[in-house]
Amino acid sequence: MTKRRWLGLAAAGMGATAAAVTAGFFVERKVDHTRRAGAPGADELGSLHSDALTVRTEDGVSLHAEVDEVAPYSEEAAKTRPVSRVGKPRRRVAPDPTVVFVHGYALNLDCWHFQRAYFRGKHRLVFYDQRSHGRSGRSDKAHATIDQLGDDLRQVIEELVPEGPVVLVGHSMGGMSIMAFAERHRDLFDERVTGVALMSTTAGGLKTHHIVSRLIPDSIGGQVGSRVIAGLARAPQLVDSLRRRGSNIGFLVAEQFAFGGDVPASYVEFVNNMLAATSFQVLAEFFPNFDTLDKYGALGAFAEVPTTILSGTEDVLTSVGHSRKMAQRIGGAKLVECAGAGHMVILEQKDRVNTALDELLAAAAAGPTSQVS
């Protein structure tokens, strides 16, 4: 590289730094103003809990879990329950499924606040923090993989839902976990799962460098993203200090990347706090999974059960195109596009999401067109 080129890059870097400092001043003012104008009730988000349970994974990680129970179902109602998909023999089960919620990257089970509030008391609900997230134990780097998350989901189902039908609801990385579970434990999936919701997620083809800039060529994009993350991971404490709970930078990042439109400041603060609670070291360990993910081969399993695929049209992390592609690959899948919503559609358009889940649960309860004794 020529000296002139180096000087040009240096000058550009200095200019960018000056611009960043100037922008930072306005960011501080903008975020402070937004926070002061925030909607009341921010402390209520993520406040719904039940007794803490622990699921121990095969590699020794303790997963924090919570179960919201409902009153026992009646035996008379159970006798009228459809019992099987066509061609899939199954014993008779309870009329209502247990709904297992699987959260996304850098979040925790609290992200399902509005779904938990809406469905509490109507269905048996299971929530858990994925490994290295929330109140769960830390994984070693070797097990920080999507496939391992699929195995963890199997463990959660076997311990917390030992019998009866299951509906799986996954957001972002949680949707990937469900796909890995279906791929690696197909027999259990076929036997127990009666419905699936995949929200703001993808089965593969995610180009994480596009989040930074569409101008980065795909041929080097994966290397750029991985190297940047690996470099930052060498000083995780420094990165975490910038991402600390309550930081204005974190607030702005959450606002820009998690939502598609204007939302109450309390929502942004809520997401920002979950992100800040997940150490950068954990983010760095899971990050390489996203560019290499390919679970399209697992999608055949979802054609056997009612499946809802939901996405915000303004999602900049897992764009709506990923949802459309999955819907094309899953026969009979219902695609729900939430106009104007971003990645955290489960907060931003909670009513639309809850309605879609209501419809999915009704379809799961309806069962097959013919019964198998």
Rank of each mutant, 00 (worst) to 15 (best):
T34C: 15
V320G: 15
V93M: 09
K30W: 04
F26A: 10
T54K: 10
R186S: 12
R243P: 01
G367F: 04
G300C: 05
G13P: 07
S247M: 11
P89C: 05
V161N: 12
G331I: 05
G134D: 05
V61I: 15
Y267N: 13
M14L: 06
P165C: 02
E44I: 08
I220P: 00
V239M: 07
V282C: 04
M326Q: 01
R120K: 09
S213A: 10
T145F: 03
L238E: 01
T307E: 11
G204M: 00
G312M: 04
G104C: 09
S172M: 10
R56Y: 03
S226T: 10
F302T: 01
A23G: 11
L317V: 13
I309H: 10
R245F: 04
P288W: 00
H185M: 03
G150A: 02
M326W: 11
E28K: 13
V21R: 07
D110Y: 11
L7P: 05
F189D: 14
M344F: 11
V167C: 01
F286L: 14
A364N: 02
G331K: 15
V126W: 03
E69D: 15
P236T: 08
F181M: 14
Q130F: 06
L275D: 09
L107I: 03
Y296A: 11
V316H: 13
L107F: 05
D358E: 15
I249A: 14
A362S: 08
E285P: 01
S136P: 12
G8A: 13
F189Q: 12
P288V: 00
N108K: 09
I249T: 15
L293N: 05
L206G: 12
G164W: 11
T308Q: 10
H133W: 02
L45C: 00
H103Y: 00
N289F: 03
D240Y: 15
E285A: 13
G231P: 03
G104P: 09
A363Q: 14
L48F: 07
L125P: 00
A142F: 12
S200E: 14
G204S: 01
A366H: 01
H103M: 03
E348S: 14
V316T: 15
N108T: 10
F257M: 15
L317T: 05
V99W: 06
A12D: 00
L7R: 10
E348V: 10
A258Q: 15
R29Q: 14
G46D: 08
I220Q: 04
A20P: 09
P264D: 14
H123E: 12
D294G: 02
R184A: 07
G312W: 09
S132Y: 00
E285Q: 03
P264C: 05
L310F: 03
A276F: 08
R91Y: 08
E69M: 10
S226G: 14
A37D: 15
K334C: 02
A144S: 14
G204R: 11
T34F: 15
D140H: 09
R243K: 13
L283R: 13
L168N: 13
A37Q: 14
L160Y: 03
G134S: 07
E337W: 07
S370T: 08
G134P: 06
F119N: 02
R324L: 15
R234H: 07
Q155I: 03
S139H: 13
A301C: 06
R92Y: 06
R81G: 02
K325N: 12
